[in-house]
Design a protein around this nucleic acid. Structure first.
Length: 111
DNA sequence: AACCTGACTTCGG
DNA sequence: TCCGAAGCCAGGT
């Protein structure tokens, strides 16, 4: 990981946005990318999380894919993320999906 | 410098 | 409605 250039970099904006996801809510990769200024950089959002979620204490578990499902694979973090979300009151249906209409995060102020 | 890879998204069959 | 292929941006090799 390189040094983040500054607060205006995509990298920094993504982190700021993720930090703003409130307890009990979730956001999708594409949505975060959109708020960060690059609606097509969903994969980079995932990359930011993977590279510095631990270091910067980001609520990485509140980020899921556009289908409302967890992207991690079983035994590679899936169980952990799901339990963290359930601990916040988020419910998964039989298809292991969450209701984005209900739990989806909506930003109030642009970053 | 070129090619591969990824915690994604979207479109077409 | 479900599945596969293509598109995208960046870092790693």
């Amino acid at each position: 990981m390189k040094n983040p250039e500054g607060p205006s970099s995509f990298y920094e904006r993504v982190k700021q946005i993720i930090k703003q996801i409130p307890y009990g809510k979730v956001a999708t990769y594409g949505q975060i990318a959109f708020y960060a200024g690059s609606s097509r950089a969903a994969r980079q959002v995932a990359w930011v999380l993977h590279s510095s979620s631990e270091r910067d204490n980001l609520p990485w578990h509140r980020v899921i894919n556009g289908k409302g499902k967890i992207s991690l694979k079983p035994s590679l973090g899936y169980e952990l993320q799901r339990s963290l979300l359930e601990a916040e009151g988020i419910v998964f249906d039989e298809a292991a999906q969450v209701d984005l209409n209900r739990y989806g995060f909506r930003m109030h102020k642009p970053v």
